[in-house]
Nucleic acid binder design. Structure first.
Lengths: 129, 129
DNA sequence: CTGCACCTTCCACTACGCTGGAACGTCAAG
DNA sequence: CTTGACGTTCCAGCGTAGTGGAAGGTGCAG
């Protein structure tokens, strides 16, 4: 399978496949006699795995770690579980952060909606921020 | 006031002040005879305003727009209110996105916590993702 | 023979908000 | 006279996950 077909089967671009190879998420591809990369079905699986990882919000670096474990022949599931736990924790933190920010901005906005623009002090640029 | 003192008064670095000038958030500074930038108290206020805007999650570009309105002599409050409304909307969307992602990841994690790593199919890299 | 779709490599660029560092000037204190 | 803390300019890089484009090779159809 050439790169375009492989990429399409996994739902990514050929550019992305080369980029992943460059970043070590895919092993160096076999080459046909004309120099074209030649892939098998396992590369499609691997690309799909990367995609699932991305969808779960994992970074390429984290996914790369999982793949490295799998490539030693071990099941990376325990590692995956830990990463998912970490990811859950990060998401909770980010959601809390954004929620706090949301409250702050909402308060500013309410004040701005209730206030009188003409009363705004130029010295302070805008009284409502 | 020299740049370091001004920056310290506003709680930013001198580098940041030069960067803001470069980006048009601060007007070109007056210069002392030795070429050093010379600032007044109004620059500290302006830097503080920028900081409040950043704290509210606004981009430098948005803050720059507000400052541009203020620099025409108009009160930017109405514009600020609109930006805050937009920001609220964006925050809601991002929080919803992250919350959905959190649910997805939580489901993966639960499955991984309950499953048996030994049963993992190498073909799929890891069954729990 | 030509056109076209595909492949190759390599370099640059995107957004965002700075930060680091080089190489140099200025000024007051010891 | 030197040291050190400040200031100046300008250029480069961070991190993230790719994307865009140039310049060229390959292979098949018409």
């Amino acid at each position: 399978m050439r790169i375009g077909e492989t990429a399409a089967a996994a739902g990514v671009s050929a550019k992305t496949v080369r980029f992943y190879e460059d970043r070590g998420l895919l092993p160096a591809a076999d080459r046909a006699s004309n120099g074209y990369r030649d892939y098998g079905q396992e590369t499609v699986s691997r690309l799909e795995f990367i995609r699932r990882g991305r969808t779960a919000g994992l970074t390429l670096s984290q996914i790369s770690d999982i793949l490295a474990v799998r490539d030693t022949g071990q099941a990376p599931c325990v590692h995956v579980k830990d990463l998912l736990a970490q990811q859950l924790h990060d998401l909770d933190a980010r959601i809390a952060e954004l929620t706090a920010l949301q409250a702050t901005v909402a308060a500013y906005h309410d004040a701005a909606a209730a206030g009188d623009p003409a009363a705004c002090d130029p010295e302070r640029i805008c009284t409502y921020l």
